[in-house]
């Protein structure tokens, strides 16, 4: 379907076996690539999210870097504090990575995130988005797409609100670097993290990370479904420099209908034909607008 371009350099594995993720967990794959790109001189900050568990129980950790667990709504504020400490200690070259789920980013952690972005803190903030509160057992977040079943949206399609456009919101803070990425496109993800690390100031990366449990897909289909998200333009891959220069980093050669992405996941089973058509229309409009923005 796509030409693989192997750009990921041989480097030390910083995510070790023995972690506690479910099979097919996108968030775990995401962390592996991100840490490969950032290397050992990194401090990770994790608020309450799936990764609070995935990393392992005391006294174990599957990460080969220092890790600060912090309260649900504080990823960006805690990353700010770690950055400040490193700077006063003369360790400006160390990366600080805030690593939060969609609930900790779009919802409860949004205030701290906006604050850190406005102050242009020199941190890399990654949101691994599995589109609901998966750690607590699949409850709707403001990153849950229209029509998705969750335990708090049992009627699925009745939840007729568009997903919060977090990247546009973050780009509107005029931070040096904002981007989307997808675990099914590891080279794109890896290069974006490398690029992010080259900027001084706030970097925000929104990573689509499938959750087989919550998306109601077989764990072996995780990457395939994530790939469909980008091939159908439901989750386009792009980056924004300084909040103004937009660039689409991957253009699908052959358009895949949104329906194919939706039908691959049982969480969209309650969705009617009309709704699917409406979503296709919204996706097409968003894509058109994105290309227009990228051309400017």
């Amino acid at each position: 379907m796509i030409e693989p371009t192997y750009t990921i350099e041989e480097s030390e594995e910083l995510v070790h076996p023995g972690h506690l993720a479910c099979q097919g967990c996108g968030a775990t794959i995401a962390m592996r690539y991100v840490l490969k790109a950032l290397g050992k001189k990194t401090v990770v900050v994790i608020p309450a999210c799936c990764w609070s568990i995935i990393v392992g129980l005391f006294p174990s950790s599957c990460l080969d870097v220092p890790l600060i667990h912090t309260a649900f709504e504080t990823a960006a504020a805690a990353a700010t504090g770690a950055r400040a400490a490193l700077d006063v200690q003369g360790q400006e070259d160390v990366n600080v990575l805030a690593w939060a789920g969609d609930g900790g980013t779009f919802d409860i952690g949004f205030q701290a995130l906006s604050g850190a972005a406005e102050r242009n803190e020199n941190i890399i903030y990654c949101c691994y988005d599995n589109e609901a509160y998966m750690n607590t057992g699949i409850q709707r977040s403001s990153a849950t797409p229209v029509g998705a079943w969750t335990t708090t949206t049992p009627q699925g399609g009745l939840e007729d609100r568009p997903k919060k456009d977090i990247v546009r919101i973050m780009a509107a803070h005029n931070v040096p670097y904002t981007a989307t990425a997808n675990v099914a496109f590891p080279d794109d993800l890896y290069q974006k993290i490398k690029k992010a690390a080259s900027y001084k100031g706030m970097k925000f990366i929104h990573i689509l990370s499938p959750c087989p449990t919550g998306w109601r897909i077989p764990s072996s289909e995780s990457i395939e479904v994530a790939r469909l998200a980008t091939l159908s333009n439901v989750f386009p891959l792009y980056e924004v420099i300084n909040g103004s220069k937009w660039r689409v980093t991957y253009i699908p050669q052959k358009k895949v209908p949104v329906e194919k992405y939706l039908e691959a996941q049982a969480r969209f089973r309650l969705m009617g034909e009309e709704e699917k058509k409406r979503i296709q229309k919204n996706v097409d409009e968003y894509w058109k607008e994105l290309l227009k923005r990228a051309k400017r």
Binding site: I68, E73, A77, A79, G81, A84, A85, A112, G115
Partner: peptide
């Protein structure tokens, strides 16, 4: 809330 979160992480890092 962020003020103390920030101090906490700074303190964890030894400042």
């Amino acid at each position: 809330h962020s003020a103390l979160a920030c101090c906490i992480a700074a303190s964890v890092m030894g400042a």
